[in-house]
């Protein structure tokens, strides 16, 4: 199955010699980062199968054919220079021969779990059967282990960004992203995508 082409913009010129992956737990700000990258001029991979809704008013920026990303042969050439969202823990499955730079979104786990719970409630679906405390402890451990594993892989570089900092200092976040990706993106446009009103499920710092 090929990587979908509609809605993407031309790849950055010159093409970056790696794939940009936006990752993090669902509800950690991954869709926001994808939106920022697209606004900055990067080609993003998404198929818009899941449309924008109350849970994500600006859209999800996902690709349903991502399981193909993990298949052999890796469609590296079609992803090179572009951004694709791969949520955690799926991001741990990146094949060995694929140079990637990962923008890893971090967010307070209590906020993530609250956001997930609210989303489930809106969808009319049941919540988790274990407490948020237990889930948070589980995810904290998985994230720590997962990021360590990603760090150990020579073809992977990771930049961690916190959701709160992106919202509070979007310009600085855009600058850090561009430096990390060595990409000439429109930082002003990137920063303009941040809308603090979308920061729901906030828990006071």
């Amino acid at each position: 199955m090929g990587i979908p082409m509609p809605h993407d913009l031309p790849a950055c010129r010159p093409a970056l010699p790696f794939v940009t992956i936006v990752s993090g737990l669902p509800r950690s700000g991954t869709s926001l980062m994808m939106q920022m990258l697209r606004a900055g001029g990067m080609s993003v991979v998404c198929d818009e199968q899941r449309q924008a809704d109350l849970n994500n008013p600006q859209g999800y920026f996902e690709s349903a054919c991502l399981p193909g990303f993990f298949a052999e042969p890796v469609p590296f050439k079609s992803l090179q220079g572009r951004a694709v969202k791969v949520v955690f823990p799926l991001v741990l499955q990146i094949p060995e021969n694929c140079p990637v730079r990962i923008l890893f979104m971090q967010r307070d786990l209590a906020e993530i779990l609250l956001s997930q719970r609210n989303m489930l409630h809106r969808l009319g679906l049941p919540g988790a059967l274990v407490s948020d405390t237990q889930m948070a402890a589980y995810w904290a451990r998985e994230l720590k282990t997962g990021l360590r594993k990603l760090d150990e892989r020579s073809h992977i570089s990771v930049l961690e960004l916190t959701f709160r900092e992106v919202l509070n200092e979007p310009r600085r976040a855009a600058e850090m992203v561009c430096q990390f990706l060595t990409a000439e993106l429109d930082q002003g446009q990137m920063a303009s995508m941040v809308d603090a009103r979308l920061y729901r499920s906030q828990i006071s710092a």
């Binding site: 489930l120 919540g127 988790a128 589980y138 995810w139």
Partner: peptide, 8 residues
């Protein structure tokens, strides 16, 4: 956690 992510 996995069931929750599937539901979502």
């Amino acid at each position: 956690a996995i069931l929750q992510l599937q539901n979502l």
